[in-house]
């Protein structure tokens, strides 16, 4: 998705948390989930995803463990923690406000 727009700073963490708020997922599942839900409009850099996961694990927003996939493959699953949900709520709300304001301003027409 090289032609998709770049991700706003700080939004990747929120998107990942949002994905994980459904269910525990491994890294590739998170990327695919975001690609599907954004219809290819959000370009997630696969490498950046893992940095974000490390960062959030360190901040106790998520935790991880090795599990088997439905196809019996070993994969590292990430799960959102209480602190992560709280983070998603507050940061998500403020991002939403920001996005709405941005959209409103862009919708203004001269005259």
């Amino acid at each position: 998705m090289g032609d998709s727009p770049p991700l706003l700073k700080g939004t990747l963490d929120l998107l990942v948390l949002k994905a994980l708020s459904w269910e525990p997922m491994h890294g590739f599942e998170i990327v695919s989930w975001l690609e599907q839900r954004s219809h290819g409009c959000v370009g997630v850099d696969d490498g950046a995803l893992y940095y974000a996961l490390h960062r959030m694990e360190e901040r106790d927003l998520i935790e991880s463990e090795w599990r088997l996939t439905p196809n019996n493959r070993k994969a590292r699953y990430y799960r959102i923690r209480a602190a992560g949900r709280a983070h998603l709520r507050t940061e998500g709300a403020s991002l939403e406000r920001y996005a709405r304001t941005l959209a409103d301003i862009l919708a203004l027409r001269p005259g």
Binding site: H26, G27, F28, D46, Y50, E63, S64, E65, K74, R76
Partner: peptide, 20 residues
């Protein structure tokens, strides 16, 4: 999590990337 020591974290990361 079974891994505790930092060098095995590196090994885990490689496995995770291969899987990805």
């Amino acid at each position: 999590l079974s891994t505790r020591d930092p060098s095995s974290a590196r090994r885990d990361m490689r496995d995770e990337l291969s899987f990805h």
